[in-house]
Design a protein around this nucleic acid. Structure first.
Lengths: 244, 244
DNA sequence: AGATGGCTCTTGGTCATACCAATCGACTTT
DNA sequence: AAAGTCGATTGGTATGACCAAGAGCCATCT
């Protein structure tokens, strides 16, 4: 029969021809990859772009939604759709990881361990590469921690900034982005539990140990200090959760 | 004027009321987080779900597109939309990282370094936790490498499977997922360059060194062996690129 | 002349509706 | 009973319209 022939052809032709909207996503990605779209650029209006790509506006919008979901595009009503600015610390959208955590039932211990692995590597790299400026910034954040031992909220800000600075000093933006992904999720958990001021002084001391190791250009010591710090932080977190 | 009053109220009321389609995404995410939607589950038909959530079908579809973009939902035409099965190695969609690489101009050296950091941690963990079964699997893949020294394509398959097995043995699915993200992108680069058979034997030997360290429950040795292996792989890759 | 307010146009956000295409299942036929 | 067929279900796309929020222009007022 002719129909079975058609099926055969379909099977042969099974080069996974994506749906039309996947085609749009691919087109846009390639435009970005080829540098035709640079950070901060504005895309043509949806109506024009849809015509230009030969698809309907809803289809185009589905593609834009996908790219917006991964944090690459940023539509602003009335203004246009923009390629996201690559400013500040590189951040990958953590929603994907958060959803995967829900689906696969990741344990907090697993997440802490992942963060520890990332930050230990980052600390070691920072010890090799940190500039004087970055080290000064770390020092300032530690000073800020000691100055806010009785203001947990403020302390947390300095804490996060310190880790950001170390990550920047590592010179590896990918590790930085991955660390941010994991840290964001852990932070959401942490912000739910009451922050007790008890351990803050000890925490600040451990940050100082990390800083000293980096300042002394001692990667192994930096790695160990970071491990000690995060192990303690995890223990404190788990202790707090038991009390709820 | 009444209008300026309205503006004032608007400013006060600035509780960042997300767009309607973001509301949909949030609803779906919470359903997943609360366990109402489990891996493999099928969502209600779009027409029904749209009515249920009080939005139009295009809006709902935009939300589904977003979640599909991060690999959580998987629409199948004619069948329905499913929550993705959490089977096999955990894999986060790498498109986000790939796009970020384009936007921020990540260097290959940076990506190699990120992979190295991740896999060194993974190897150390695997040395502590690998089961006998997993070690046997590693051994088999190494055998496969030696058996395909003159078939680069086949060798590469065993290579990748070995690293997958080590990652699984690490017991940390987050690190595994992150490693896969980075490795996927590097693999895309690698598959473009011609694979020369010259170094395959040496590569296989280094894999064996990793395996032995894991078998001996020696985390430090495993970490070092993994570092040596990936450093050499990077050097070989860079050498090949010079020849193009 | 400069600043300020409002107006209008651009542009993303939403909706309703219709039709196409792939899949699945029940029914019919052999 | 097995296999093919047809129809219902369901995601994919298209058209067209309207709403809402910025942005920029212009007229008015100071």
């Amino acid at each position: 029969m002719a129909e079975s022939n058609a099926n055969i052809f379909k099977a042969i032709d099974a080069e996974r021809r994506g749906t039309s909207f996947e085609e749009v996503v691919m087109q846009l990605r390639e435009m970005i990859h080829r540098g035709e779209l640079r950070p901060g650029d504005r895309l043509p209006p949806e109506r024009d772009l849809a015509k230009q790509l030969g698809v309907s506006r809803p289809t185009l919008r589905a593609g834009i939604s996908s790219l917006a979901a991964v944090g690459v595009l940023q539509p602003r009503r009335g203004a246009g759709t923009f390629v996201v600015e690559a400013e500040g610390p590189p951040t990958l959208d953590s929603s994907a990881l958060r959803l995967m955590a829900s689906l696969q039932r990741f344990t907090p211990a697993e997440m802490f361990e992942a963060r520890r692995s990332l930050e230990m590597s980052i600390a070691a790299l920072a010890a090799e590469r940190a500039t004087g400026e970055q080290m000064a910034e770390m020092s300032e954040e530690i000073t800020g921690m000691f100055a806010s031992l009785d203001e947990p909220e403020q302390f947390l800000v300095h804490d996060m900034r310190f880790h950001q600075t170390v990550a920047a000093a590592s010179g590896n933006r990918i590790l930085t982005a991955l660390m941010n992904m994991v840290a964001t999720i852990l932070f959401e958990v942490r912000s739910k539990t009451v922050r007790r001021a008890r351990d803050l002084k000890e925490s600040a001391e451990m940050h100082r140990a990390i800083y000293r190791a980096i300042r002394d250009r001692n990667p192994e010591a930096a790695r160990d200090a970071m491990r000690d710090h995060l192990m303690l932080a995890q223990a404190a977190q788990e202790q707090e959760e038991e009390l709820d």
